[in-house]
Amino acid sequence: MPHRQNLYVLFCGVILAAIASAQATARPGYDINYIGPPMADPVMQHSKETYVLFGCSYCHGLYLVARGEATDLMHSRLVGSDENGNVIGPLLRRGIPQTAKLSPMPQFSDLSDAQIADLVRWIHYARQQGRFKEVMEAKDAGAGNAAAGKAYFEQKCGTCHATADVARIAKKYDAAALKAQILKPRALEASPSWRLERLKDAKTAAARQRHGALLENYSGAEVANLIVYLQGMK
């Protein structure tokens, strides 16, 4: 029996080594340890590689954890106010020559619109992933204030969501699950598809964009307030 176990371990080892080897040799010189394995969504993978290739990651960090004096894109208000590159795009093209920092943000005047769209897509994706983790793990968000949550709901959510619908959804989850659902509604977490009916589903695309923008700008306290308010609607 020990002999069979050893063979099994050896077999698994060979398979794992083959997978690792295939990954490492798939693209000679490709820095898989830094850039990471290919993502499921090739469009996002391309955006990520564009972000690396133009040197953004060198200062701003691959996952927006800034190095040195570079702007913290994870928490930048400017990035949080961007819609489809309307703020980031012009800034990339002109740079920030007037600054108190040692190295001004360079100008990337030769970028195409498509390249800027790629960079913007990655910045927002990475920011949403990072903010989700940050808010989910926040320990100092407080107990929450229902009145403040109600005011936030009416201002930011009420234009799309009826109170009764949200009350019904809130009943299905405990506080932690509700928090995750507020930050990243599962209904909007679809795998990438190029089927025409998905591509032309403008309503879902708009909802995804809206929730993405909210996720990028939520504070821990705002989410805590929303949870208390929504749970009180039961």
């Binding site: 693209r27 010189g29 490709y30 820095d31 340890n33 830094y34 850039i35 590689e49 972000y51 690396v52 290739l53 133009f54 040197g55 953004c56 990651s57 060198y58 200062c59």
Partner: peptide, 10 residues
């Protein structure tokens, strides 16, 4: 400081 998909050594 330019971007690259290659390893630092490469």
């Amino acid at each position: 400081e330019h971007g690259t998909l290659r390893t630092g050594v490469d």
